[in-house]
Write a protein that binds this DNA or RNA. Structure first.
Length: 344
DNA sequence: TAGTCGTGGTC
DNA sequence: TGACCAAGACT
């Protein structure tokens, strides 16, 4: 990794065409066969991009979220007409549930403002709820092959290394810089393949740890000698440890008490009810989960007489059909498994 | 603008 | 095991 590099930052524009061709040629050989690459339907592309925001490809592939979503909501009309409960249930386990609500809002905008025909103009797509600069560019380039640049975490990493950029790529100045480079490099033709290739290069070759420079198709264009030290990012807010006390309550018919989250973010998702302060009742489960920078210890108290509490009771079978974030889903699975064991 | 929003994988 | 990270957007 210490040999001299023939191309430096200043010479890259001249070699732009060669850079683009190298990306396109590499991707033609190494492209993964993802389900969202088998379609150019802009709605399907939007679905995949929302699912993939801050979410790894393997997560979306693993439980077939994309395929199941399109089976249940094959077009903007079916999604626009669905209930929020159905939408949240289909999204269960993916996290960032606001994305699911935004996706449905976007479908309703397309139905109401565009007569159900998906817009093709970047500005129209950018105006959809939950769609930012990256997602809008991804939709128009993947669905319509329009020459528009995109920058996600993969592309930002590739560009930071390519130009040996030492500023923080997740601060406004750094974002502005990598977007400017991305726009300078984007080809006039073949953008669908080029954008996919640039992202997949970051995912497969120009990885966060131990980038595989020996197999990189654009190594000759890369300015950095210390790729593993780039990109620089702003420091994270430090982890805060908190305890969360909740209630596990079953009535004589086996109905389990749950309440629905309020507030703007996780609104509509069901959860175990919050315990009184100070909490009472025997502790029947402790588990840990993370949410943003919080490290939460979930402490479940069994409460026998909770008849006066608000909320709704569900049978064990009915629990399957409602939307719940992963920590509470896992807690309930563990609680009911213990219960079955005790009965045997 | 810094904080928020989920989850699972990696080392 | 804890810290980091991911096909970001919003407030």
């Amino acid at each position: 990794m210490t040999e001299s590099k023939p191309a430096q930052t200043r010479t890259l524009p001249k070699a732009k065409r060669a850079f683009q061709n190298a990306i396109i040629a590499w991707f033609s050989e190494h492209a993964e066969d993802y389900p969202w690459r088998r379609t150019h339907d802009p709605y399907a592309v939007l679905v995949s991009e929302l699912m993939l925001q801050q979410t790894q490809v393997a997560t979306v592939l693993g439980r077939r979220y994309f395929e199941r979503w399109l089976e249940q909501f094959p077009n903007v009309n079916t999604l626009a007409d669905a209930s929020e409960d159905e939408v949240l249930k289909a999204w269960e386990g993916l996290g960032y549930y606001r994305r699911a609500r935004n996706l449905q809002k976007a479908a309703r905008v397309v139905v109401e403002q565009f007569d159900g025909r998906f817009p093709e103009k970047l500005a129209d797509i950018l105006a959809l709820p939950g769609v930012g600069r990256y997602t809008a560019g991804a939709v128009v380039s993947f669905a319509f092959d329009q020459s528009v640049a995109i920058v996600d975490a993969n592309v930002a990493r590739v560009l930071a290394r390519l130009f040996d950029y030492e500023g923080a790529v997740d601060l406004p100045a750094g974002q502005q810089q990598v977007w400017a480079w991305a726009e300078e490099l984007v080809p006039g033709d073949g953008v669908r393949v080029y954008n996919s290739g640039l992202m997949e290069l970051g995912q497969k070759i120009c990885t966060v740890r131990q980038p595989n420079c020996r197999e990189c198709p654009v190594f000759a264009f890369c300015a950095t000698r210390v790729p593993e030290q780039l990109p620089v990012k702003k420091p994270r807010t430090s982890t805060v440890f908190v305890d969360e006390h909740v209630v596990f309550s079953r009535d004589e018919d086996g109905g389990i008490l749950l309440e629905q989250e309020t507030g703007k973010r996780r609104e509509g998702l069901w959860k175990l009810p919050e315990a009184s302060d100070p909490p009472t009742g025997k502790i029947v489960l402790k588990m840990q989960y993370s949410i943003t920078h919080y490290r939460v210890t979930l402490i479940v108290h069994e409460v026998c007489d909770a008849k006066s509490r608000s909320g709704r009771r569900f049978s064990a079978a009915a629990l399957e059909a409602i939307a719940m974030s992963s920590p509470y889903r896992k807690a309930l699975v563990a609680l009911l498994a213990n219960d079955d064991f005790a009965l045997n």
